[in-house]
């Protein structure tokens, strides 16, 4: 193998219209613009890919923007397919956007059955107007039988918490991939009588 393949992880954004999903997407995309030649608007972009280094492994997060899909149920399933991660987004100043998350969660579990699920409270900068508390979020996670792998608070206005969230998601997806691969290898090995001859394991486990 000439090059080490960097695995792609599809991440989708779920939540009500107006909670800041496109803002998160834009933050994710624009923060990577480094050189002048690379610099371009996010105009018309629906998908954006970034490579994260987690430990000694690279992982590619491919974020998908929704743009209008939140309103049409049957089509949403197309968007959810093949997702490895799903971020449930709500606005911290809008309890309704939080209370409806269980519906979005159901969609994820149905259409993206293997996705790791994360919770993200956006608009953290609106300090005085925050109505959804940390306790509310923890309760929600408990009610979902700990289906939620991470809780984050972000502000797309200031950018606070955004990069940290994606970096953590990248790390978690990489870890879970690694353990899945290890499990697969273990299963495979358990049926083998002799180990393969001098065949080195794939160095990339995630």
């Amino acid at each position: 193998m000439a090059s080490v393949k960097v695995p792609e992880q599809k991440i989708i954004l779920c939540g009500e219209y107006g909670v800041g999903k496109s803002s998160l997407f834009r933050r994710y995309a624009t923060n990577t613009f480094v050189t002048a030649t690379d610099r371009k608007s996010t105009l018309g972009l629906d998908h954006y890919e970034k490579v994260y280094l987690t430990g000694d492994k690279n992982v590619k997060l491919q974020l998908w923007d929704t743009g209008g899909m939140e309103r049409v149920a049957s089509i949403t399933s197309s968007y959810y397919k093949f997702a490895e991660g799903a971020i449930l987004v709500f606005a911290l100043d809008n309890p309704d956007s939080f209370n409806i998350l269980s519906q979005h969660l159901l969609d994820i579990v149905t259409y993206a059955e293997n996705a790791k699920i994360f919770l993200c409270g956006n608009k953290y900068d609106l300090k005085s107007q925050i109505q959804v508390t940390d306790a509310d979020m923890e309760n929600f996670c408990e009610q979902c039988h700990n289906l939620i792998s991470g809780i984050y608070k972000t502000s797309c206005k200031t950018g606070a918490g955004v990069e940290e969230m994606f970096a953590d998601i990248a790390r978690q997806l990489c870890d879970s991939n690694r353990s899945r691969k290890e499990l697969e290898t273990m299963n495979k090995d358990s049926f083998k009588v002799t180990p393969p001859e001098g065949e080195p394991e794939d160095s990339c486990l995630c």
């Binding site: 629906d46 899909m69 968007y79």
Partner: peptide
Amino acid sequence: PHLLTLNTALIKPVQRILKYPL
């Protein structure tokens, strides 16, 4: 460069028709 996989290109029309109301 922003077309990452065949699927990200194939889903474009699905995303586009839903954007017109927005």
